[in-house]
Nucleic acid binder design. Structure first.
Lengths: 155, 155
DNA sequence: GCTGAAATTGAAGAAAC
DNA sequence: GTTTCTTCAATTTCAGC
């Protein structure tokens, strides 16, 4: 049920293996990658380029511990938009990505409209984000804040 | 309020710049990095190695679109542990990371105990995760599922 | 600590199979 | 798609500052 599929949207099992390897180590050298999946380095190179072009790989990022960049307080903030402010949702959503504390924006359906993963310098900073940047806009009908103790990546 | 601090836990502004650059592009070559922050490539190398050793950089990962690996259905599942099962929380948490659908586990405080970011093949798969892997354990007193329409990374 | 030069290694493209 | 070859760029080490 939760296994890796054999073939997806034109990607063969080698592509899927490459994606899996790069998800674990985004800096694995092309040579090593080619070796691991059993193809030639040049072929591996063109495959990875293709994976980037089609959008299967959206980018490569360092996983930086927020605590080390002065943002030890993390939270997930569930945000509900006022029913009469739905048309402003687009611009508002854009503005969210501009808040430095925001690490992820999830557009969801459920009892809230957005989930924001934020990393803040301290509790005052977190409160400022919620009261000034969210509630302060007048577009929000409710928020719920989950303080994050720990965040683990999956396999 | 949400600005980058000048100095944090022994990291100077150059370290913070490096972290910022690598967060955006985890594959930026060492030469380019050194150039951008105004230090020699060899110095840059030792700094980045140190950033990894101290844990400021936890790793480098490709950002793979779940839809391309056969998991187009994403959700955030809020999970509440039964009060009388708190001591089993550790082993349960470990088992979560082993579920292939799970991309992130957030340990939180609030009206739930965990938030799970999952990516599933289809709605049946999602239901299986919730009913079999979560509720089915008998450790859970409640879940709430937010279907994710879109996920954007912050700056 | 940082630098600059030297050596090693990897990336990327071309040609032929 | 693979292999080999070739060129160029990046990584890494190290003596010296």
């Amino acid at each position: 049920m939760t296994d890796v599929p054999k073939d997806v949207r034109g990607l063969d099992h080698i592509d899927l293996e490459l994606l899996s390897l790069l998800r674990v180590d985004g800096r694995m050298p092309n040579n090593a990658l080619a070796d691991r999946v059993g193809i030639a380095p040049s072929t591996c190179l063109t495959r990875i380029r293709r994976l980037r072009e089609i959008g299967a790989v959206r980018g490569f990022h360092a996983d930086v511990d927020p605590a080390w960049i002065g943002r030890p307080i993390q939270a997930m903030i569930a945000v509900r938009i006022r029913p009469d402010a739905r048309e402003a949702i687009g611009r508002f959503a854009e503005s969210l990505a501009g808040i430095r504390a925001v690490r992820d924006v999830y557009f969801v359906s459920g009892s809230y409209d957005f989930l924001l993963h934020v990393a803040c310098a301290d509790v005052d900073d977190l409160r400022a984000v919620i009261t000034e940047r969210l509630s302060g806009t007048g577009l929000i009908s409710g928020t719920e804040t989950y303080l994050i103790f720990e965040h683990r990546r999956g396999v």
